[in-house]
Design a protein around this nucleic acid. Structure first.
Length: 719
DNA sequence: AGCACGCCGACT
DNA sequence: GTCGGCGTGCTC
């Protein structure tokens, strides 16, 4: 009897395709196969085998090649992919393809890469290095190979072993060159002892049951409360049970410091998965995780899709971070997928943050999550002292007011470090003509151009232009830089603190490989310095010697049109403030603002994150915003605004389930981006199932047209 | 997504 | 007559 397989392909068609197998050996679901599709060969994932087909047998083609002996994706992951596909309304075949590392999306075998090494032959093992005393270079090779079974050519160079003498040894048949798989990242712990927990930490540890199946825990611990130590000890328990741990962090810059702590503590194997790896490294790490060889897997959001045979615990650190949401192709939320995965695999998941997202806080307060609080800073560090600077009274120069300036001076005199936060890179956000009011704008977007040192750059489409000398509207020479970015404040600091090391941390200063790492190392030396940077500073980094944090400007976040604007500002300020005074010395935080009476600042001043978050939740409740209803966004874009808008107007005529509101179409926040006009339709409902029904109806309609480009974003980050 | 098929306007 | 515009529909 002929055996058929249903294969999901990475194409924009929702249905699986059927192919014929050449043997009667069934394939496991999750196996990669190479199949003909149109004129091409594509890699697909086997969904199931079957004996019969329900369409024209003449059309069925045979599978070209079976690519895996072990399925690339486990049955768990296949099921997760089905959920992801339905929830985010994205085609299953494409979801599955995105779950594989790039190296396995093609028709390569799932094998680890190899490294060429030199090893002793059986004959060579019988030779004592002293027998080669007259040939010191060869002798060096033999003695090294007696203490280390395999030497790569890279190691040989650093050990100053001569390649030519190795070739002589090869000719003599004493050593041989072979290709071995890249060894797994295995670590010897340098500091394996658990720290002593305070009572609060101990209570949290005791209350997270690892053997109770699925449960979602939220550790709400103030900055510096020692959350990490709690999950290190939790991880130890999981590892002792012979299970794997998956830790997610929001972005790549946090991988370094996290892995440092993990390596110090655990004597075990690791896999790191993040965007800084090349395809080979990523592939290797992924295969280590899938085989179960790696016991700890640390990665950014996409590692939530990694096949792990013995998974026992998922940790989502800094769970509030917006970087967990993917904003292209498959628009999933890493944290939410992690929770669903834990549920499907019936294991615990731990979310942690000093500033939990409103969704998670809401879930915790409603007992859907188990809430654990850490209210004290560990190691007796005190919460910082927070103060506002009213910019109406203290006009800033290049972003820095007099009170902040003198406070910087004080802290530097005490040999401390200062951290300044400004969420705007470049020199100045606007170039304006003081004669006629004209501003330099991007030709491709509805955005002003940011002034950088040598050019004008659009931060939205990355297009650059040379710096203008004359106004394009009235030809006057009165062009002025308005507002300020990190570079402008950096220049101010260089002028006024000429003997102090100024370190700028933003996307522009950390472009080159390792730049961030080097700069973080300089900071950790502890020398007094001023660090100025964008939001990347706020993300969980440990700055021991920082005692003063200055927030140069966060007013734009207070009155944002976006429903999450205030939540983000609250989180950002709380996190930034938390960078101050992590060690013994009391920290200080100065926030510059033109609106010092805004209630958000009062909450920050009094360390009332939860109080204010609760108020924001109440407001969301009154306005029926998430998490009190569910929403999805449909974007259509086209080179002509009219075409994009009419496509959505047509869509709106389609009848939807009664309990779904359809709002729009309206222009997107930046209606023109990279020469395309973008319009939104927003769907809202109290009922998740009705919302999904509505999305499906509209998606089907969209698939039938080819005029506009479109996407669907479920639980969008911005409305 | 690609790629072919097919039905209408402006060219050698 | 035919070259090529892009609307429609299919891919196992």
């Amino acid at each position: 009897m002929t055996l058929f397989v249903e294969v999901a392909l990475p194409v924009r068609v929702n249905t699986p395709f059927t192919y014929q197998l050449s043997t009667d050996e069934p394939l496991d679901a999750g196996t990669r196969v190479l199949v003909p599709f149109n004129a091409k060969q594509l890699v697909g994932i086997v969904l199931c085998c079957k004996n019969e087909i329900d369409f024209d047998p003449k059309k069925v083609k045979p599978v070209t090649k079976v690519l895996d002996t072990t399925p690339a994706l486990s049955a768990d992951m296949l099921e997760l992919a089905r959920w992801v596909s339905q929830y985010y309304h994205y085609r299953l075949g494409e979801c599955l393809s995105l779950m594989l590392p790039k190296g396995l999306r093609g028709d390569n075998p799932a094998q680890k890469s190899t490294v060429s090494v030199t090893q002793l032959t059986d004959k060579g093992k019988l030779v004592h290095p002293n027998q080669l005393a007259k040939k010191p270079k060869q002798q060096a090779w033999l003695s090294q190979l007696n203490s280390q079974a395999a030497i790569s050519s890279k190691q040989a160079t650093s050990l100053e072993l001569s390649p030519s003498s190795r070739n002589t040894l090869i000719k003599q048949g004493l050593v041989v060159k072979t290709d071995l798989p890249i060894p797994i990242l295995h670590n010897q712990a340098t500091d394996p002892n658990a720290l002593e927990l305070n009572t609060e930490q101990q209570t949290v540890l005791d209350n997270i049951a690892l053997d109770a199946g699925f449960q979602c825990h939220l550790i709400f611990g103030v900055t510096g409360s020692g959350k990490t130590e709690v999950f290190l000890q939790l991880m130890q328990q999981v590892l002792d049970q012979n299970k794997q741990v998956l830790i997610l962090v929001p972005e790549i810059s946090l991988i370094d410091q996290t892995i440092k702590r993990l390596k110090a503590r655990f004597d075990t194997t690791f896999a790191l998965l993040h965007s800084g790896l090349n395809d080979t490294q990523r592939n290797d790490a992924w295969l280590d995780a899938r085989s179960g060889d790696a016991r700890i897997v640390l990665g950014t959001r996409s590692s939530v899709f990694c096949t792990l045979p013995d998974l026992g615990l998922i940790i989502v650190d800094e769970e509030h971070d917006g970087a967990y949401k993917q904003n292209d192709t498959l628009r999933y939320h890493g944290r939410d997928v992690a929770i669903v995965r834990a549920q499907k695999q019936n294991i615990p998941v731990v979310l942690a943050s000093a500033t939990p997202s409103l969704e998670s806080l809401h879930n915790a307060l409603n007992n859907r999550f188990v809430l654990h609080r850490l209210t004290q800073r560990a190691a007796n560090a005190q919460m910082p002292f927070i103060e506002m600077v009213n910019l109406k009274q203290h006009e800033p120069v290049d972003g820095i007011s007099q009170p902040l300036h003198s406070r910087i001076q004080q802290h530097l005199e005490h040999n401390k470090q200062v951290l300044l936060f400004l969420n705007r890179r470049g020199f100045a956000p606007t170039v304006m003509c003081t004669e006629c009011g004209w501003q330099a704008v991007c030709h491709q977007c509805d955005a002003r151009l940011t002034l950088h040192k040598n050019q004008l750059i659009c931060h939205h489409c990355n297009q650059s232009q040379p710096i203008l000398r004359q106004c394009k509207s009235c030809s006057s020479h009165s062009l002025t830089a308005i507002g300020n970015g990190t570079v402008r404040s950096e220049m101010y600091l260089e002028t006024h603190f000429p003997n102090t090391h100024i370190i700028r941390l933003d996307k522009d200063s950390t472009q080159t490989k390792d730049a961030l790492k080097t700069q973080l190392e300089i900071i950790s030396n502890g020398e007094p310095c001023i660090i100025i940077g964008t939001q990347m500073l706020a993300k969980g980094h440990h700055f021991d010697q920082v005692t003063l944090v200055g927030v140069l400007d966060c007013d734009s976040g207070l009155f944002s049109a976006d429903f999450k604007g205030e939540e983000r500002t609250l989180q950002l300020l709380t996190q930034v403030a938390g960078r101050s005074g992590r060690a013994k010395d009391l920290g200080e935080v100065l926030i510059q603002t033109y609106h010092p009476t805004h209630p958000l600042f009062q909450a920050i001043e009094n360390n009332q994150y939860e109080f204010y978050a609760q108020q924001l939740l109440d407001a969301r409740h009154d306005m029926l915003l998430p998490p009190f209803n569910f929403s999805a966004l449909i974007q259509a874009d086209h080179q002509y605004a009219y075409t994009a808008e009419s496509a959505l107007i047509a869509l709106k005529q389609i009848p939807l389930p009664p309990q779904v509101d359809c709002i729009g179409p309206m222009p997107a926040f930046m209606a023109k981006l990279a020469n395309r006009y973008r319009f939104h339709l927003v769907l809202k409902s109290q009922h998740r199932s009705q919302l999904h029904m509505a999305i499906t109806i509209l998606q089907n309609a969209l698939q039938k047209q080819s005029k506009v480009r479109w996407f669907i974003d479920v639980d969008p980050n911005e409305l």
